[in-house]
Amino acid sequence: MSTTTRGVILGRFMPPHNGHRYLIDFGRHIADELTVFLCSLPPDPIPGTLRLQWMQEIFPTVRLVHITEENPNANKNQPGATAIWARALAEHMPHGVDYVFASEHYGFDLARELGARFVPVDPSRSLFPVSATAVRAAPMTYWDYLPEPVRPFFVRRVCIAGADVRRRVALGRALSQHFKTIYSGDYARFWQDHMDRPPQEADLPLLMRAQAASEGALARQADRLLFVTTDPTQLALQWRVQHGEAADRLAAERQGGYDLYLIMEGSAGSDPDGLASRYRSMIPTDANVVTIPVPGDPNDPDDHIGLALEPACAAVEELLRAQ
């Protein structure tokens, strides 16, 4: 007779948070084998496949079962729903279930249907006062409860646009210092500084992918906000002006919108190539756009950044208040 004990956890993990981490780690310390069932449906606000990827990264050694079948009778408010869920779980547990771990009372009825023992885990949520519903409603408030793989989904991305990349970077650096987070710089300038030749037309697709990769990698380390001083679209438009190559198609292949666009607007004549106005015409019409006046010497990227910082901070604060 096997002495191996087996436990199960059932949830939507939409998204997984530190309360879930405690629940699963708790179960792993009691059961010899733990199976976590992730349930998702197509209309869910966070795709089930993405949640599965998160769970696989956060819990690489836990057995995960993704349940995607829709059964209206399995709604927890329907009579007999618990028995339906018990049968669905039992199909994946040929050796039976010894423990059901949950922070909610449904775990008691589910354990009874499975012939297992119910082990409540922080039912009052006094250890981790958070829920997935609360995270979705106010992710900035519950930011500290989000595991690193989940954070890029909720991080607020602020794109800084303007004709002068030096000023964009200067404002991005100042904003990241003010809000105690990080910013994504201009990868093309970094590339040119470290290669033994100037970029060529064939390099543009790689540079654009690298710019997007930099943003994606930094999003995992950002604290609620990520300031982007060059996005792939600005990079393509800038290339078109500086190198005389038609980059319209690549410029149109946007990596996606941002939560806020800060458009740096200099004095007359500060955008002779029309980069800023052209970029602005490509921003989605329903986007959150704020114009930031930037007077001063165009040859000095740090000149009057202090004046631009105040309205920029106000726009970002408003973004955070809106959650």
Rank of each mutant, 00 (worst) to 15 (best):
L171S: 02
E215D: 14
P284H: 09
F128H: 15
E317H: 14
L218C: 04
S270L: 02
E245F: 13
C313N: 07
L41G: 01
G296N: 02
L307F: 15
P45W: 07
R224W: 03
P301S: 09
A81E: 12
P123L: 15
E91I: 05
D231A: 08
M208E: 10
Y99W: 07
H304R: 15
F101H: 00
L250V: 00
R87K: 09
P284M: 08
R166L: 06
A246I: 10
R157I: 02
V135C: 13
R117N: 04
P139G: 06
D259F: 09
M93I: 04
P60Y: 07
A90W: 03
D98C: 05
T35E: 10
D203E: 08
L171V: 03
R249A: 11
P149L: 08
G96F: 05
A276Y: 00
G244I: 11
L262W: 12
P293L: 07
P15D: 08
P295E: 00
T229D: 04
R6F: 06
W191K: 13
L52P: 01
A210Y: 07
P198K: 06
R173D: 12
N73W: 09
N71K: 11
N75D: 12
P199V: 06
A170L: 07
V150Y: 11
A132Y: 05
Q78W: 05
R51N: 04
K76A: 12
E201C: 07
V169L: 10
Q56C: 13
N77D: 06
D25C: 08
H92T: 09
F59W: 14
G162T: 13
K76H: 13
M1S: 10
T230W: 02
